[in-house]
Design a protein around this nucleic acid. Structure first.
Ligand SMILES: NC(=O)c1ccc[n+]([C@@H]2O[C@H](COP(=O)([O-])OP(=O)(O)OC[C@H]3O[C@@H](n4cnc5c(N)ncnc54)[C@H](O)[C@@H]3O)[C@@H](O)[C@H]2O)c1
Ligand SMILES: NC(=O)c1ccc[n+]([C@@H]2O[C@H](COP(=O)([O-])OP(=O)(O)OC[C@H]3O[C@@H](n4cnc5c(N)ncnc54)[C@H](O)[C@@H]3O)[C@@H](O)[C@H]2O)c1
Lengths: 211, 211
DNA sequence: GATAACTTGTGAACGATTTCACAAGCCCTC
DNA sequence: GAGGGCTTGTGAAATCGTTCACAAGTTATC
C-alpha cells in the first residue's frame, strides 16, 4: 500500500464523526457531496481519501452510512480498543483522564501517574493516581500502546525515554518541548500556544494566511 | 504579500520557542542549520520560511538570536498582547484558564464564563468564573479578540454565534463539533480524539503513514 | 587585498496533495 | 430492457509546499 498522507487520516476521523451524527439521525445512505459540505472539503476529496483503502460506495447511490462507519473504523484501527496511560496528573492530565470522548472511541485510560505525593492516591473519576515509580511495572504488566504526556516541558524527554523503554510505541505530547523518540515509536505533539499564535498571525495579517 | 502556508506559521512558532531557549543559554548567533536540527526540519526550510517576510540574517554569519526573536514575534503578532475569553469553565476550560504558557506569550485571559450556577463565582487561579449572561456585555466592554470554546459540542455552534455577534474575530474550538463562523472570523479546532486516532492509524498500519 | 571557509536568500526542480473531469455503474421509471 | 438522472472511482492536470543548488555576501587569516 502506498503511504497515506496525514491530512487524509485526519479527514477520515472527521468523516467518521459526521457519519455517526447522520446515523443517529437515522440517515441510511450518504453521498460524497453531503459528507463534504458538512465538513469544509469537496466531494472529490472525500472519494479520493476513501479510494486509498478500497471502494466503499455504490455508483448512483452513494455510501451506506452504517457500512462506511464500519469501514472507516477498521481503517483507523478503531475496531479494537487501545490502552492509554497518562503521565502527569496536573490540570491537563486530570482533564484528559476524565474526558469521556476518549472512552467512547475505544481509548481506555488504564493508568495515570504523578510524582507529587500530594496527588498520588487522588481519585479522578474512575481512576486513582499512582506513583510514577509504578510506570514501568504497569506498562510491562498492562501493555498499553499509547502514553499521553502531561508533565512539565523540562522533564518531558526523560519521561518519554522511560515509557518508550518500557514498551510504549505511541506518544501524544502536550508538553511544549521538542522530544526525540526511538525508531519504531510514533509521536504527535499538541501545542496549544502554537494554535493561539496561528490565530494571532491571522489577526495580524488579514487575508494573508492561506486557509 | 503572497499567502503564507499554515505550515510556515506553525514552524515559525517552533523556531521562536527554540530561539528563546538558545537566548536563555546565552547564544548570540545561530545558523539556519542549527535552528533546523533542533526541530525536525532542514536549513533550507528555515531560510525559506523566513524569506517570505524579509531578510533577517547575515551571510557567512547566520542570524542574531535576539533580533530574530524580535522579528518572529513581530511576524506572528506577538509584539502586542491579545485578550482571550474562555467559554465553559469545566475540566478543560479550567485547565486552560490556569495555564501559564498562554500568559507568558502575551495571551491574557480576561474572562471565563459558564452557565452552571454551581461554577459561577468559583476562582480559577487569578480569575473568577462569571455567568454566561455577561459574555456579550464583557466582550463589548473589554474587546477581547479571541474566544476559546470549552463547552459541550451540542452548544458549540450557539456559543460561537453569540461571541462572534458580540465582536470576537478569532475562535479556538476544543469541542468536537464542526462549527461555522461568519466571514472575517478565523477559527481553529483542536480535536484530541482525532490526534489519538491518527496515532491508532499509525499503530495499525506500520510503515504506511507518511511522516 | 586575495583567499578560504561559512552562511544566507532565492529561483528552479521536485514531490506531494488537491482538484478536475469523465467513463463506468446503479437505480428507477416507463 | 432502454433511457434518464445520479454518483462513484480514478487517471490526468493543476496547485501547493519542500528541497536543491548556487550566486552573493560576510568574516577571518595571511
Ligand atoms: N494546563 C493547560 O491547559 C495546558 C495546556 C497546554 C499544555 N500544557 C502543558 O501540559 C503540561 C502539564 O500542564 P499542567 O497545566 O497540567 O501542569 P501541572 O503543573 O498542573 O501538572 C504537571 C504535573 O506533572 C507532574 N510531574 C512532574 N514531573 C513528573 C514526573 N517525572 N513523572 C510524573 N509526573 C510528574 C507534577 O507533579 C504535576 O502534577 C505542561 O507541559 C504544560 O505546558 C498545559
Ligand atoms: N476534558 C477534556 O480533556 C477534553 C479534551 C478535549 C476536548 N474536550 C471538549 O471540551 C468541551 C468541554 O469538555 P469538559 O471536559 O471541560 O466538559 P465539562 O462538562 O467539564 O465542561 C463543560 C462546561 O461548559 C458549561 N456550559 C455548557 N453550556 C454552556 C453555555 N451555553 N455557556 C457557557 N458554559 C456552558 C458547563 O456548565 C460545563 O461547566 C467538550 O466539548 C469536550 O468534548 C474536553
Amino acid at each position: 500500500m502506498k503511504p497515506i498522507a496525514e491530512s487524509t487520516v485526519r479527514r477520515l476521523s472527521l468523516y467518521l464523526r459526521f457519519l455517526e451524527e447522520f446515523e443517529a439521525q437515522g440517515q441510511l445512505t450518504i453521498s460524497s457531496g453531503e459528507l463534504a459540505v458538512s465538513r469544509g472539503t469537496t466531494s472529490a476529496q472525500v472519494r479520493k481519501d476513501l479510494s486509498f483503502f478500497g471502494s466503499f460506495g455504490k455508483r448512483g447511490l452513494g455510501y451506506d452510512v452504517r457500512d462506511l462507519i464500519g469501514s472507516i473504523r477498521q481503517i483507523l484501527g478503531l475496531h479494537r480498543t487501545w490502552s492509554v496511560v497518562i503521565i502527569g496528573a496536573g490540570k491537563i492530565g486530570a482533564a484528559l483522564a476524565q474526558y469521556r470522548g476518549f472512552a467512547t472511541r475505544g481509548f481506555h485510560v488504564v493508568g495515570i501517574y504523578d510524582k507529587d505525593p500530594a496527588r498520588i492516591g487522588t481519585k479522578l473519576g474512575e481512576i486513582t493516581v499512582r506513583s510514577d515509580l509504578e510506570i514501568e511495572r504497569d506498562i510491562e504488566r498492562l501493555r498499553p500502546q499509547i502514553a499521553v504526556l502531561c508533565v512539565p516541558g523540562e522533564v518531558a524527554q526523560a519521561v518519554v525515554d522511560r515509557v518508550t523503554d518500557a514498551g510504549i510505541t505511541a506518544v501524544l505530547n502536550f508538553a511544549p518541548a521538542q522530544v526525540q523518540v526511538p525508531n519504531g515509536v510514533t509521536m504527535r505533539a499538541v501545542n496549544m500556544a502554537t494554535e493561539l499564535e496561528i490565530l494571532a498571525f491571522g489577526l495580524s495579517h488579514p487575508e494573508e494566511l492561506a486557509s
